[in-house]
Design a binder for these strands. Structure first.
Lengths: 187, 187
DNA sequence: GAAATCATTTGCCTTATGGCAAAAAGTGTT
DNA sequence: AACACTTTTTGCCATAAGGCAAATGATTTC
């Protein structure tokens, strides 16, 4: 829990009272490996912070292939900041056992109405995360598969050995066997 | 200018007075083809709305190749919502002659302090744009070059015939000659 | 701890895309 | 219209990555 507060405070200041309010709204839950936190077609209105474990966002393309869009590991915030009322097009799945800090939409909105500056903090967090994801993705496009994998390793050092190959391969836009060969060549 | 107001109003309501205030802060400028709106290494603190023309965001990778990260055409808002004080890592360049509506950072912040709900509107706009870009990029990764080009055409129908081939190729992560061949095969 | 299940590696061959350079087409200038 | 200049197309060949299937290795289940 302190992890979460620490994270939040990197984006703005809060007093003790405010921190207590936030803490009181959070519920800690477990999510077992392979379980979905959110499923496509359903509404995703909660907000979750990963205390431990790895989540991924994935979807199916028109050939029915499962594509991993992004990984999130410890100390990352997952939410659907706008489009709250639209069903998700993607799945959010635990790729390892996870411990999550979850806020209901109602509580989250209450924080927004009670704590001055909360919205600004939250917006900064989401904006920053999105920018980063965007940058990663763009950088991947112009490189060959080996370089893409190396870049992935740099960005997600903790993820590489904890998730199935196929997830990483689809994230990088290569086949599982290609990735296996690339891994071998790297060492 | 009405274009801009119309665009803004899609994300929230504003009264006449507020609209007038916004309008009074905007400066219309021209940017000739190939000119940079922002250069890497400099601070980008303004906010620009494209009334006419096409901009692109591009950067150089470690091989010195120029990569187009994104295109923006008419009715799109360009800004650097956070990281206002950090120098840009990218260039923003006019790929056709452009007419832009520009706000200084000072005026933009003033709007934020004067108009209740302005921040919320602006955040929605940026968030939505970033999500969309992210989705495009992710979708591109798992497809072959031809499909990527077709997806590009769907997303940026107005861009395809107005910008150099090399820009599109680097956006798609393929070489110019490959793109040329792909185009031939499509018709 | 053997069987069953699932994930990864590997082999063989095909195919898409890249690299390089020349030709062709397009654009602007005088 | 002729020139220079830029952008796009094309040819030829090299190579990275894909497709498929079998083999190996790892994990779970009874």
């Amino acid at each position: 829990m302190e992890k979460f507060i620490e994270y939040i405070l990197r984006f703005g200041n809060l007093n003790k009272q405010q921190i207590e309010l936030i803490t009181s709204k959070a519920t800690e839950t477990e999510l077992r490996k392979d379980k979905y936190f959110v499923e496509a077609g359903k509404i995703f209105s909660q907000v979750a912070f990963i205390l431990e474990g790895i989540l991924r966002i994935c979807f199916y393309n028109n050939k029915g292939e499962e594509i991993t869009k992004y990984f999130g590991d410890e100390n990352h915030l997952f939410a659907n900041p706008y489009n709250i009322h639209e069903p998700m097009a993607e799945y959010i799945q635990a790729v390892t056992d996870c411990r999550l800090l979850v806020f209901s939409r109602k509580d989250w909105d209450e924080l927004s109405n009670t704590i001055v500056g909360w919205d600004s903090i939250v917006n900064k967090i989401f904006q920053k995360a999105l920018m980063e994801k965007m940058d990663r993705r763009s950088a991947l496009v112009s490189e060959d598969a080996t370089t893409r994998y190396l870049m992935f390793l740099e960005k997600f050092p903790t993820v590489a050995n904890r998730v199935p190959l196929s997830y990483i391969a689809s994230y990088l836009g290569i086949t599982q066997s290609s990735l296996s060969r690339i891994r071998k060549n790297i060492r």
